[in-house]
Structures are given as C-alpha cells and as structure tokens.
Design a protein around this nucleic acid. Structure first.
Lengths: 183, 183
DNA sequence: GCCCCATAGTTCGAATTCGAAGCAACTCGG
DNA sequence: CCGAGTTGCTTCGAATTCGAACTATGGGGC
C-alpha cells in the first residue's frame, strides 16, 4: 500500500506512529500528506470555477491582484512572482493578460531601471471586490463548513509554521535565487 | 487588505472592510485559507522537482501510479481520474504517456465494453519504489520537519474531514453530473 | 427489439505553464 | 572607465492542461 487509503472515506486512524529519525514516514504521516494534497486540489478546482464564473479570473490572476492589493502599492515582477509561487516567465504572461484587461499597469522603477513595477488599477480593485464574496463563500462552504473554530485556528497555526519553514528552506536542487531578508 | 498578510509570518489581522458583507468568515479564516494554499503550492513545486529528478515522473503521473498500486489491481479511467482530481482528457493524455513508457497497460473491461481498465506493470511498481524514498524524504523535510506528532495527527484529522466533506458535496457547479450514487 | 439519454473514453483546439536562452541594467574591483 | 558576473524581465519552444465535441456502449421504458 502506498497512499495508506487516501481514497477512502473512513479514517482508520488506529496507527500511533511517530516521527522516524532516519527512516521514512509512517503510514499516518504519508496519509496526512496525501489527504492534504488531495483536499487542496479539490478546493483549488472549485475555487477556479467560481473565479472564472464570477469575474473571469484564474486563480493565479486572483492571487496576483490580491497580492497587489495587499501591497498597497506597486510590486516588482519578481516580488510578485515570488509571493505567488510562480515562474517568472509565467508571470510575464499573466501580467500581460492583466494589463490588456486593464486590471494592472506596468511601468519602470525609478530606483532600478531593470525592474518593472506592477500597479493595480481601480478596475483591478473593483474586480477583486467583485469576486471576493463568492470566493469567500466557496472557501466557507467547502473548507470551513466541516471545521470548528478550534480546527481552523489549529490549521492556520500549523500551516503557517509549515509555510515559514519552507520559505526559509532553499529549494535545494535548483539554482536558488537570492533571498532578500536573509533570516 | 485582502489576504490578511499572506506574505507575513503571522498576525497583522486588521483589514479594511470588503468582507464584512459576507458574514461568517473573518480575516483569521481567510488567512488560514491563503496560507494553506500557499504552503501546498510550495510543497507541490518541491515535490515535482524531486519526482522529475529521481524518476522522471510528474506529480500527476506519480499519483496515478500510486493510486493503481493502492487499488491492488485495475481501475477504469474514470475511477483513476476521479481519485486524482483530474480531467478525463488529461488522463487520456497521461495514460498514453505512461503506457508508452511501459508503466501501465490499458485493456478493455469484461463487464463494460466502454470502460478501459488501466493496470500497473512491474516496471510501474518499480518506478514507484524508485521515487518513493526521495518523495517521502521531501515531505518529511519540508512538511513534517516543523511539526510535532500531535500537529501531524491534527492536520491529518482536519484535512480528512475536509476531504470527505468536499467529496460528498458536488463541487462542480457547471458540469455537475456524476452524483447519482445516493438515494 | 427500438428510442432516448446517460456514461466512458478519446480527439481536438486553445490556453497556460515552465525552463532555457537572450537582452538590458546594475555592481564591483581594478 | 572597463570587464566580469549578477539580477530583472521577456521571448521562445515544448509540454501539459482543460472543456467541448465526438464515438460508442449500457440501461430503461415502451
């Protein structure tokens, strides 16, 4: 058995494994990993449908706009790609689409002539506002519905630690790009 | 603020409006949702690198082989696609690649003339064995390293419930067809 | 046995993705 | 100031993905 029953509905949690030191993972960890990937996959599919239906956006495009909204200003292409976990060439493509749609603008940076600053437009903000309610609704219905407040807090806590850990860890094999804020 | 600080480590939980009209989901949940998606994105990228390097497989291909291993036998294309959260046409493409690589075989079903039964070959099993150690290692290093055994158990439990919930819900709004199993 | 429609897979076209290669600008030591 | 190496972004080609259209089989009602 490889995936430890990732396709089953029942949760046979009768394994009391522990973090092995030199060995691999126990079935419990492996099952956790697989169910995590599967759930997010399902969620992402649903979310993509909603964004496309409500505002003709892909999830990546939504992420980019949301990130720009967060930044309260402009971001360089690299910062944007880095935040969204995306290839640079892919971002060039998507930024082109967003610019053509009038949701962002691209301009040169005063500090660095090479850099391209991406700015969200009012139409872009409007689009985010347009899809956000439905987006939130999907997340609530699919992800949060079966969870208690305590579950949500635990999930957020755990995944935040995982995210921070992965962000701190270099990709290890590929040509690691420079990390600002060396921590 | 939209993503409630998805690029930060934690807190900064203030945001300005825009979500209050959809009751029931606060910034904490939204942040949890975003950090979940981000983490899995990072993890998936790393895993894809490993699989490609260790066994020249994409994550989807690995999933398909793993699922076939689990099934201990043959699965139809639809069962396979459904388990992996994948489009049917995409599966046809990938199954073609796997067949050409000699990792699976495709044959007609005795029960249903329309169905195609996909079977993993010994070479396929071998390939899974070949990449699984490194795969597990990546998961351990990136996902489980910062987590306690209790964290892992909680994560598995929560995501299992989420997965079951989403599997029970008809996620496809547009092409919701295959849901006639219940009564 | 014959319609009608649902189901299983494939094919096809369009869109998206990535990595490698290329170009422009920045940095630093001499 | 020059050259080498680095960084930011885009272009390019190949691979992958999805949805819609299509073919063929299965099942129910008549």
């Amino acid at each position: 058995m490889v995936t430890a029953g990732s396709g089953n509905t029942s949760n046979s949690q009768r394994y009391s494994g522990r973090m092995a030191d030199t060995e691999g993972l126990g079935p419990e960890q492996l099952a956790t990993y697989f169910v995590l990937m599967e759930s997010v996959s399902l969620l992402q599919h649903a979310v993509e449908q909603q964004l496309r239906a409500d505002g003709d956006l892909s999830y990546v495009q939504f992420q980019l706009l949301a990130r720009l909204t967060d930044a309260q200003g402009q971001l360089t292409m690299t910062e944007l790609a880095d935040g969204v976990v995306y290839s640079r060439s892919g971002l060039t493509y998507q930024a082109g689409l967003l610019e053509k749609a009038g949701l962002v603008t691209r301009g040169p940076s005063p500090d660095d002539e090479r850099a391209t600053l991406v700015t969200i437009t009012d139409a872009g903000r409007q689009r985010v506002d347009q899809v956000l309610p439905g987006h939130v609704e999907v997340a609530r219905r699919l992800l949060f519905a079966p969870l208690s407040g305590e579950d949500v807090r635990a999930l957020g806590d755990v995944m935040t630690r995982v995210r921070d850990h992965m962000r701190a860890e270099p990709p290890r094999s590929a040509a690691a790009r420079a990390r600002r804020r060396d921590g």
